[in-house]
Simulated assay, not measured.
Amino acid sequence: MQILLCVKQVPDDSIEIHLDKEKKPNLNGVSLVANAFDTYALELAVRFMESNGGNVSVLTVGADDSLNTLKNCLAVGANEAFFVKDDLYADLDAIGTAHVLVDAIHKIEIDKGEKFDLILCGKESTDEITGQVGAMLAEKLEIGYVGSAIEIDLKDDVMEVHQETDEGYNVVSLKTPAVVTVSKPDYDPRYPTIKSKMKSRKAVIPTYSAAEIGEIKQAKVRLIEYVEPPKKEAGIKIQEKDATLAVSAAMEQMKKDKAI
């Protein structure tokens, strides 16, 4: 099975980011890494390949610094990578990104001489958190779609996708080709070995420009401004040692704050 993972490079979400004087995210000193949900999707894809055979490719759209993200993906199990590089992609919205990915997928399939059976994306990116690209990609490719997957099995040439829900999960039967977005499964992504990291550094990654891929669609969504979330106020500490008095004090405070 030919699997393609679409990866987005984002600021490291373990670092608290603030706005600069121009009211834009200050990314000075912030590392750019693969989107967390994309790393879960890659681990799912590699495990699927190890159990069922096949090939895992990764694709990203971005500027020069995205190349390291692709090489990191190769170091943890992907077989090959493709890079669509152009500064013109800096201001893409979700639908523009989906359009570029579709054109890139068609181009790569022509160059490879074979089509992808399964296209994976993280369920959302940790920077913009729109969660829209995967569904838009499936619609433009006119193929099946399942969101928020935590596991994929293959039974009699039909995929069984375990889809996460608020109540548990659904099991959805899905024929290929299809697009599946991945939530966080019960396992964590693997770490690269020294050998795999050295090998990935030497990898030759096919690179395409915007001119080779196709027309860039004008963004339909306009960003008005960034606003930092309000800072949490310090809580009130109740220091009564007696449980009855502590509950009474808490109730009085909630009444005062009109919480009840």
Rank of each mutant, 00 (worst) to 15 (best):
Q132S: 14
H106K: 12
Y187R: 04
C6P: 03
S248M: 12
E215I: 09
A219H: 13
D91Y: 12
I119P: 00
E109I: 13
R201F: 06
F82N: 00
G134Y: 01
I236S: 11
D103F: 00
K256G: 15
E212D: 12
E114M: 01
V182H: 07
L141G: 07
H18T: 15
C6S: 05
I105M: 06
L4F: 01
G29W: 06
E80W: 02
A249L: 08
Y145E: 04
I213H: 01
F48L: 07
G235S: 03
A178K: 00
A36M: 15
G77L: 02
S125N: 11
V61R: 00
T193S: 15
E151K: 13
A246T: 07
V171E: 10
V58Q: 01
G122E: 08
V58F: 08
G53H: 06
G77C: 07
L154A: 10
E233I: 12
D13T: 14
I3S: 00
D111T: 09
D117V: 05
V102C: 03
D156W: 06
L245Y: 10
T176C: 09
T39F: 00
R222M: 12
P189Q: 06
P11T: 03
V100R: 01
E252K: 15
I108D: 03
I119M: 03
G29S: 11
K258A: 11
F37Y: 14
D12V: 08
A94C: 08
G235M: 00
E50L: 15
K155M: 07
R201C: 08
L245K: 13
V33Q: 10
L141N: 05
I238G: 04
E167F: 14
K123Y: 02
G134A: 08
